[in-house]
Amino acid sequence: MAEATEEDPRTRRRGPRSNWVPLGLAAGAVALLVVAWPLVNALLPGSESVPSGDPVPVGSGGGYRASLTFPQEGWALNTGASQAGHTYRFHRGPVRLTLNSVTPATTPPPSVEELWEGMSRLVRAGEASARLGEPEAISTHDGDEGLTGTLESGSRRGAAVVYPSPDGRMAVEMTLAGRDATTADIAAVADVVRSVSFTRENS
């Protein structure tokens, strides 16, 4: 057959390559990707400081953009562990501020109480022992209303907050806590959770 003439003689002359070669290359490629990227990532510096007074965009949904403005100096963003538009992890000393921008999938959008309940379940999914306390009303410096309550788990104690955007198509959810943070540490920066702003996308 014509097809037999092209490569067979060459293959026969050089002999087949041992199957160990593709096996080694495949295993090596998997090991390289799984080990190399996390290793390089661990070697790179992962934080960038966030100046106070400058609004940090933290997501959008419906017709609104959300931003957070830090009232204190000393906050830093963990860029490697954050995801633009969705999750932002800030820290200041032992205090950790985790912010999630969520976009409900249902119409009409959920009430703030339903958002609190959803956040409570998500916190439990992340840490089995974590619980949110009874929520109380809170408002941003701009007057947008939300709910806040205590966050308690086996390893940390702090506060949780949720603010729906004015049209309810998105919400900003935050937890302010830290494994090594004292009540005084958290109290010192507690007003950061009121510095969320919602602005219309086309304004």
């Binding site: 799984v34 990532n41 633009a84």
Partner: peptide, 27 residues
């Protein structure tokens, strides 16, 4: 095996992009 390794590898490389190129661009 592939998606589990993907979670690890993607997590590492995504973080590298976020640190090197900025959160907004990598997003």
């Amino acid at each position: 095996a592939a998606p589990a390794a993907g979670v690890l590898a993607n997590g590492g490389l995504s973080s590298i992009w976020a640190k090197g190129l900025g959160l907004a661009f990598s997003g």
